[in-house]
Simulated scan of single mutants.
Amino acid sequence: MQLPDLEAWAIFARVAELGSFAATAESLGITQPTVSKAIARLEKRIGTPLLHRTSRRMTLTAAGQAAVDRAARLLAEGEAVEAAVTAQAVSPRGHVRMAAPMSFGVAHLAPLLPAFMARFPDVTIELVLGDETVDIVGGGFDLALRIGNLDDSSLLARRLCGVRILLVGAPAYFERAGRPKHPRDLATHRGLTYAYARSGTAWRFHHARHGDYSVGIPSVLRANNAEALTPALLAGQGLALQPEFLVWRELKRGALEVALPGWQPPEIAVHVVMPPGRSRPARVQALIDHLARRLSQAPWAAAD
């Protein structure tokens, strides 16, 4: 059995990332002819070109497009292995810059940090909170937490835990407005809506027997932070689709109730995303592992 040419695949991944043989050579500390020979060797081995090269630009062929994501993962894993082995005898140290959604960051992320800080006193953390999607690479972030279904991108991602979305309202609201029996009934109810919801103005549900159903609901309050809907929810001013991590305590004490049992909005997840094509320093990996371990045990975390 012939071993794969891992070095050439790693060089190809960096060429695809940087778009230049010269930049790749400088990045990897090798010569430009070494880069060119590696790509030529790889193309000969697989029997098809990976790159279109002209005097002015370089683009991926169809074969290159099909291979680039896996090649990038090979490079990242190789870098990560070397970094982990090099750092295994050294306590993680240095600075980690992290972004997270506002409400989740305050209520569920920040309480996890003191234990990490006590275990790794030489690691400093900069936490940037906000519900807008940050540019991880442009903003100089080592990682970011994202809640929802991830768009296709070049970012590296790791799922930390599942999150149920629940349709909830206060008992006083149901006493006044009645309980919806089917998603279509929501068209006559009052909605409290999250501005950054991926589904826009439509609320989507799935039932094991009745299938999928989408409905629009009149919005009487719209906010770009889901926690800002909680006071109106508790005051009986409408219904909202809320992640369970925001309302699990209110549900437990009966201040809120789940509407439409059996009709489930699509589940989402908490992910950590990282810049592509980079090895993860020990301090970043240690923080990711800490968050994964703690969040998977949260009382609201959905089982995977």
Results as ranks from 00 to 15, higher is better:
residue 186 L to D: 01
residue 226 A to Q: 12
residue 188 T to D: 15
residue 247 V to A: 06
residue 195 A to T: 04
residue 162 G to Q: 05
residue 196 Y to W: 11
residue 255 A to H: 06
residue 162 G to R: 04
residue 157 A to W: 07
residue 213 Y to D: 10
residue 198 R to M: 13
residue 269 A to T: 09
residue 279 S to D: 12
residue 271 H to Y: 15
residue 180 P to S: 07
residue 209 R to S: 14
residue 192 L to V: 03
residue 231 P to M: 04
residue 273 V to Y: 04
residue 221 L to W: 06
residue 279 S to W: 11
residue 292 A to W: 00
residue 281 P to S: 08
residue 284 V to I: 08
residue 155 L to E: 11
residue 191 G to P: 00
residue 159 R to L: 10
residue 250 E to H: 15
residue 237 Q to V: 09
residue 212 D to S: 08
residue 180 P to G: 10
residue 261 P to K: 00
residue 249 R to I: 06
residue 287 L to G: 06
residue 241 L to G: 09
residue 166 L to R: 03
residue 267 E to T: 12
residue 249 R to H: 14
residue 214 S to A: 14
residue 259 A to L: 06
residue 227 E to S: 11
residue 205 F to N: 03
residue 245 F to L: 03
residue 199 S to L: 12
residue 185 D to R: 10
residue 249 R to S: 13
residue 185 D to Q: 08
residue 271 H to D: 12
residue 164 R to Y: 00
residue 203 W to E: 01
residue 271 H to M: 03
residue 180 P to F: 08
residue 196 Y to D: 07
residue 215 V to E: 13
residue 211 G to T: 12
residue 163 V to Y: 05
residue 236 G to A: 01
residue 274 M to H: 07
residue 232 A to S: 14
residue 259 A to W: 05
residue 283 R to F: 02
residue 230 T to V: 15
residue 252 K to L: 13
residue 215 V to K: 03
residue 241 L to M: 09
residue 297 Q to E: 15
residue 171 P to M: 07
residue 277 G to Y: 01
residue 173 Y to K: 03
residue 234 L to R: 08
residue 217 I to K: 02
residue 206 H to C: 06
residue 220 V to N: 03
residue 211 G to L: 12
residue 190 R to W: 11
residue 228 A to L: 08
residue 297 Q to S: 14
residue 279 S to M: 09
residue 292 A to L: 01
residue 290 H to E: 02
residue 291 L to P: 02
residue 268 I to R: 05
residue 240 A to W: 00
residue 208 A to W: 09
residue 167 L to W: 03
residue 282 A to P: 05
residue 263 W to A: 01
residue 203 W to M: 08
residue 232 A to P: 07
residue 231 P to H: 04
residue 202 A to W: 12
residue 281 P to I: 05
residue 281 P to T: 06
residue 216 G to N: 14
residue 158 R to P: 07
residue 214 S to T: 15
residue 274 M to L: 14
residue 220 V to D: 05
residue 227 E to D: 14
residue 224 N to C: 07
residue 240 A to C: 02
residue 167 L to P: 06
residue 176 R to C: 05
residue 256 L to N: 01
residue 177 A to V: 13
residue 258 V to L: 06
residue 255 A to N: 03
residue 268 I to W: 05
residue 162 G to D: 11
residue 157 A to N: 09
residue 198 R to L: 13
residue 174 F to V: 10
residue 245 F to I: 01
residue 251 L to G: 00
residue 228 A to S: 05
residue 186 L to Y: 07
residue 292 A to Y: 00
residue 223 A to S: 09
residue 195 A to S: 10
residue 157 A to T: 09
residue 267 E to D: 15
residue 206 H to S: 13
residue 190 R to G: 00
residue 277 G to C: 13
residue 262 G to H: 08
residue 260 L to S: 01
residue 252 K to D: 14
residue 214 S to G: 14
residue 168 V to R: 03
residue 186 L to C: 01
residue 267 E to L: 08
residue 189 H to Y: 15
residue 295 L to F: 07
residue 278 R to C: 08
residue 264 Q to R: 10
residue 261 P to R: 02
residue 297 Q to G: 13
residue 159 R to F: 09
residue 206 H to W: 10
residue 202 A to M: 13
residue 187 A to D: 13
residue 223 A to Y: 04
residue 248 W to P: 02
residue 231 P to D: 00
residue 244 E to H: 07
residue 173 Y to A: 02
residue 203 W to P: 03
